[in-house]
Amino acid sequence: MNHYATNRRWSDQFLPQIKRIVRCHLLETAPDPLDWHQTTDLLMLDARDMRIAA
């Protein structure tokens, strides 16, 4: 039996919820001057080679 495939199917069910949680920590509202002058509503955390294990 392929344990990886079984474990992957089980863990994949949690990915949508994890993505929703992480997204809240990666985006923030842009400060007013950026919105006014550069039409920027949201800023994303700028992290190089970010990896998340859950």
Rank of each mutant, 00 (worst) to 15 (best):
P33N: 00
I18Y: 10
L42I: 13
M1L: 07
R51M: 01
Q13K: 12
L15W: 13
E28Y: 07
R8L: 10
T29Y: 14
I52Y: 03
D12P: 00
P16T: 11
N2M: 00
R8C: 09
L26S: 01
L34R: 06
Q13C: 11
A53E: 04
E28G: 00
A54K: 00
D12I: 08
I52Q: 04
M1E: 05
D12Y: 05
W10D: 14
I52V: 13
L15M: 12
K19S: 08
W36R: 08
D12L: 08
P31L: 05
H3A: 11
D12R: 06
L42T: 06
D41T: 15
T6M: 10
L42G: 01
P33K: 07
I18W: 11
F14C: 15
A5V: 02
T29E: 05
A5G: 07
D12M: 11
L15Q: 06
M1T: 02
D41N: 15
A54T: 03
A54N: 02
P31Y: 01
I21A: 09
P33T: 04
A5E: 15
D32F: 15
A54I: 09
N7W: 14
W36C: 07
R8Q: 06
V22Y: 03
H25G: 10
L26C: 02
I21E: 09
L45P: 06
D12N: 15
Y4K: 08
R8T: 13
L45Q: 14
L45N: 02
R51Q: 02
W10N: 08
M50Y: 13
R20Q: 03
D12H: 12
A5F: 02
N7H: 11
L15D: 07
M44H: 14
L43H: 03
A47W: 09
V22I: 04
I18T: 15
S11E: 10
L34K: 00
R48I: 05
P31R: 00
H37P: 04
R8W: 14
T29R: 01
T6H: 15
D46L: 13
A53G: 11
S11D: 11
Q13D: 14
I18H: 09
